[in-house]
Design a protein around this nucleic acid. Structure first.
Lengths: 224, 224
DNA sequence: TCAATTTTTGACCGCATGGCCAAAATTTTA
DNA sequence: TAAAATTTTGGCCATGCGGTCAAAAATTGA
């Protein structure tokens, strides 16, 4: 029998009331959902998105496949909760490091290096996230998390760049291209490190920060 | 009946003689292979790698599915020939533009801008290539074209950077990180332009070249 | 204790995939 | 023209997918 709480999968999705309030979940319910998400992260990171079937995820979690369908409305909901969770983790970590930083160049270096530090401790999560970003599609075939979903990051970076330009700390450059290129450099830092784990990630981040320090700073300034 | 030339698909793959000589192909044979590869490019670019089945590719080419199996040893061989073809195209174009260029900064700008120019005329091919790079896996599940397959590009870029550093044109920086970051910036330029076709790709390339010009040049130099 | 409820199981469904092959159609060769 | 070789067709196969469901098990509450 289905639970009376939410027939058709205990989902939080869509068509609910105007307020997106969390449905109350029992302790067991939350634990199961967390367990399933963890298994999904490990499976996707280890075998790739395409081979991370519900059967594989269930096997890794040590449960029956039907349990996933019972706790999530479908595979899509599972993946979206996973992405939310990973996003919140990295956002909180980097946000704390950036809080109170002032000065564009300093901010930029702290941003790059704190993301790298987070990567060091959450390799599996981020590998899964990368797989999901490049593979997960909506029902109509369009990428669910494409470049468009990086827009909030681009906007935040542009704001930092604009302030630095107004203060004279940064040279004149196209802030959109700089934001896209910086984020590309950071994303690729993780991909490169994943393929070459022997490479010192911390040193890589320092070097990457140096690249964008030189790329952004005002021209007339002497070396520091 | 199977052709006597190569039972089991008219493949060029593996286990053949020590010399990797091309098997002779009739005019029709070459035309069919080209037609199938073209249909594969269009299908992958339009629908994504995961949904580009042999049936979809055959339908786009206006042929029966079995024809693909007859002319290629399998889907893998088709994809690998496709990648080779696209690679040759972009290599020839960019190589011609770079030929005879001297000076690290000039070389870098020509490299970035000529890749962008190629993108303008070959959007479909490059979209398919991107899908293949992130999705295509070998039989054992490992990525067929991962970051490791960019190694030759990294090595070539490192060579340019090292020469520039020795001549004093470039500052001291880690050439590997610079090479990886530049290539990431170029790859992402295409991805961004695909998502935002209204963005002026040529202007983007100019700006990206500016970023790496500032990132690489010797510190003491004044602006030009 | 025992009935009501929640949770789990494992079998099953329709569907799409890559690959296979006998037969038919077409082209080449003699 | 006729035999031989090549090419194409279309149906078939086993496999794995996400999702569903009746029944069983476990938990909860009176």
């Amino acid at each position: 029998m289905r639970s009376k709480i939410d027939p058709g999968g205990q989902s939080d999705a869509g068509k609910g009331k105007s307020e997106s309030q969390e449905p109350e979940r029992s302790f067991i319910e939350k634990a199961r959902r967390a367990q399933i998400i963890d298994a999904a992260v490990e499976t996707i990171a280890a075998r790739g998105f395409a081979k991370a079937s519900l059967a594989q995820i269930a096997e890794r979690a040590g449960i029956s496949k039907g349990v996933i369908s019972y706790h999530f409305a479908g595979k899509s909901e599972l993946i979206e909760r996973l992405v939310e969770q990973v996003y919140e983790g990295i956002g909180a970590f980097v946000g704390a490091r950036l809080d109170g930083q002032s000065g564009g160049a300093v901010w930029l270096r702290v941003y790059i290096e704190s993301v790298a530090e987070y990567m060091l401790g959450h390799q599996t999560q981020l590998a899964a996230l990368g797989e999901i970003f490049s593979h997960f599609r909506t029902a109509d075939g369009a990428p669910r998390y494409g470049i468009a979903s990086s827009e909030p990051i681009y906007v935040a970076l542009e704001k930092v760049f604009l302030e630095g330009q107004q203060s004279g700390e940064f040279r004149a450059f196209d802030v959109r291209v700089m934001a896209v290129s910086l984020q590309a450099g950071i994303d690729n830092m993780f991909a490169y490190w994943s393929a070459h784990p022997e490479h010192d990630l911390t040193a890589y981040a320092r070097e990457l920060a140096g690249i964008f320090e030189h790329a952004t700073r005002a021209d007339s300034r002497a070396r520091d």
